[in-house]
Amino acid sequence: MEQLAADDLDLAERHAPEEQVEAAVALTVLYEPVPTALRRLTQADESRRRLGDG
């Protein structure tokens, strides 16, 4: 998790100082759903393995 936080800040710092807040918000809006979606896909896959295909 620390590495993800560092990567987020590194991406925001690539922008001009006056754009960094906008960049941080955009990164949050765009990237935050990705780990959640991956977790849900992984949970569905694990459920299929444990419970069978139906």
Rank of each mutant, 00 (worst) to 15 (best):
V29S: 05
L38V: 10
M1V: 07
A24Q: 04
Q20K: 11
Y31N: 14
L30Q: 15
V25W: 06
A5Y: 05
D45V: 01
V21H: 11
A23L: 09
Q20N: 11
A23S: 04
R48Y: 06
T28C: 07
Q43P: 03
E32D: 09
P35K: 03
A24E: 11
A6C: 02
R49K: 14
D7L: 09
L9D: 12
E2A: 14
D8I: 07
D8T: 14
T28H: 04
Y31E: 10
L27Y: 10
V25E: 09
E32N: 01
E19C: 05
R49G: 02
P33E: 03
T28R: 13
R40D: 14
E18Y: 03
D53N: 11
E13Q: 15
M1E: 09
A6V: 03
P33Y: 02
A24T: 13
M1R: 08
Y31A: 09
L38Y: 08
A44S: 05
L4F: 08
V21K: 09
Q20A: 05
V34G: 02
S47M: 03
P33Q: 00
E32L: 10
P33K: 00
R39L: 08
P17F: 05
V34N: 01
D45L: 04
Q43H: 15
E22C: 06
D45E: 13
R40G: 08
Q3K: 14
L9G: 01
V21M: 15
Q43C: 03
D53M: 05
D45Q: 13
A12Q: 08
S47I: 02
D8N: 15
A24M: 11
E46R: 06
A44H: 08
G54A: 07
S47T: 13
V34W: 02
A37P: 06
L4N: 14
D10K: 15
D8A: 14
L38F: 02
